[in-house]
Simulated assay, not measured.
Amino acid sequence: MRKIQRITVLGAAVAAALALAACADASPAPAPAPTPAAPATTAPPAATGETTTAQVFGPACGLLPQGEAPGSLTAMAERPVATAAADNPQLSALTTVVRATGLGSALDQQKAVTVFAPADTAFVALRAELGEAEYAELLADTDALSALLTLHVVGTRYDASGLVAEQTVMSMGGAELTVGGTAQAPTITGPAGTAAAVLCGNIPTANATVFVIDKVLLPKE
């Protein structure tokens, strides 16, 4: 019960922040002020964190649908992140969370984000950790689910190399996430100290790079 209450405290605020960010992204940008021409020796642009299907890695990638079937790498690359996740057979529990919070549209409207997507097996492990009653309470609490969801979204788009180079990133829920391991096998540690391994990483979608992970990240005790 206490764990659910801690998550709920954060939920409404972070859900509103994500929705506002989506609205801001959808608004037309003001006309930029004229800028002087760049010198010929300008530095190369920073990496965008975008990936291709050829850069996907991880032991569970082979479990995805193949070819152009819904949920395949090819299909996901063409859709915004929440819509893409809804077709992925490894992410049905996460899709239930997204639909319960009503934040699917807000996620799809983000311009360039990183999403740590707990696999269905991660939610099975969370249910075992919380117990059936508390897990059911979590699923019925949209504020708690909103807080949980935004803990898994970072407002900058990273590929695996970029994540490992950063070492720490800030979630859209306002919590610091620690990145360890290597670009071939990164780990993501949440505020409560749970370290998640990447099951399938560098998955491209239209507006996000997705990392399917084996644990659900939780807020600090």
Score class of each variant (00 low, 15 high):
residue 212 V to Q: 15
residue 75 A to G: 09
residue 181 G to K: 01
residue 216 V to I: 06
residue 94 L to M: 07
residue 156 T to G: 12
residue 63 L to Q: 14
residue 171 S to A: 08
residue 93 A to H: 02
residue 34 P to V: 01
residue 192 A to R: 14
residue 117 A to P: 05
residue 129 E to A: 15
residue 35 T to S: 15
residue 199 L to P: 10
residue 182 T to E: 07
residue 98 V to Q: 05
residue 178 T to M: 09
residue 103 L to Y: 01
residue 46 A to R: 13
residue 15 A to P: 04
residue 103 L to N: 10
residue 166 E to R: 09
residue 75 A to S: 11
residue 120 D to L: 02
residue 205 T to G: 09
residue 79 R to H: 15
residue 195 A to I: 12
residue 114 T to A: 02
residue 190 G to L: 15
residue 153 V to C: 08
residue 69 A to M: 09
residue 130 L to H: 01
residue 54 A to T: 10
residue 196 A to Q: 06
residue 3 K to L: 10
residue 111 K to N: 13
residue 82 A to E: 14
residue 37 A to M: 15
residue 176 E to W: 02
residue 15 A to C: 07
residue 98 V to H: 06
residue 199 L to F: 07
residue 64 L to I: 04
residue 43 A to G: 12
residue 78 E to Y: 11
residue 14 V to I: 13
residue 8 T to P: 02
residue 53 T to E: 15
residue 213 I to V: 15
residue 210 V to C: 09
residue 219 P to F: 12
residue 166 E to Q: 14
residue 1 M to C: 11
residue 5 Q to L: 10
residue 27 S to D: 15
residue 15 A to D: 12
residue 11 G to I: 01
residue 217 L to K: 04
residue 110 Q to L: 11
residue 190 G to S: 06
residue 135 Y to H: 05
residue 84 A to K: 04
residue 144 A to F: 03
residue 30 P to W: 07
residue 51 T to W: 06
residue 86 A to F: 00
residue 181 G to W: 03
residue 16 A to G: 14
residue 164 V to K: 06
residue 175 A to F: 04
residue 66 Q to F: 02
residue 186 P to H: 02
residue 200 C to M: 03
residue 121 T to C: 03
residue 147 A to D: 08
residue 184 Q to F: 00
residue 118 P to M: 07
residue 71 G to S: 00
residue 34 P to N: 11
residue 125 A to H: 08
residue 55 Q to D: 15
residue 14 V to W: 12
residue 196 A to L: 02
residue 117 A to Y: 03
residue 152 H to S: 02
residue 215 K to A: 14
residue 179 V to H: 03
residue 4 I to C: 08
residue 32 P to V: 11
residue 99 R to E: 13
residue 134 E to V: 00
residue 186 P to L: 05
residue 45 P to T: 07
residue 88 N to M: 05
residue 82 A to M: 11
residue 113 V to H: 00
residue 96 T to K: 09
residue 121 T to D: 13
residue 80 P to H: 10
residue 152 H to Y: 00
residue 4 I to Q: 13
residue 204 P to D: 07
residue 152 H to I: 00
residue 2 R to T: 11
residue 10 L to C: 04
residue 1 M to T: 12
residue 135 Y to G: 03
residue 92 S to A: 07
residue 128 A to Y: 11
residue 55 Q to N: 14
residue 158 Y to F: 02
residue 205 T to W: 04
residue 135 Y to P: 01
residue 127 R to E: 12
residue 114 T to P: 09
residue 41 T to V: 12
residue 197 A to N: 14
residue 125 A to G: 08
residue 112 A to E: 06
residue 26 A to R: 03
residue 45 P to H: 05
residue 59 P to F: 02
residue 93 A to M: 01
residue 18 L to W: 04
residue 100 A to E: 14
residue 154 V to W: 06
residue 116 F to W: 03
residue 86 A to N: 03
residue 164 V to N: 06
residue 178 T to G: 01
residue 53 T to P: 11
residue 31 A to N: 12
residue 194 T to I: 15
residue 179 V to A: 02
residue 208 A to M: 05
residue 182 T to D: 07
residue 1 M to W: 09
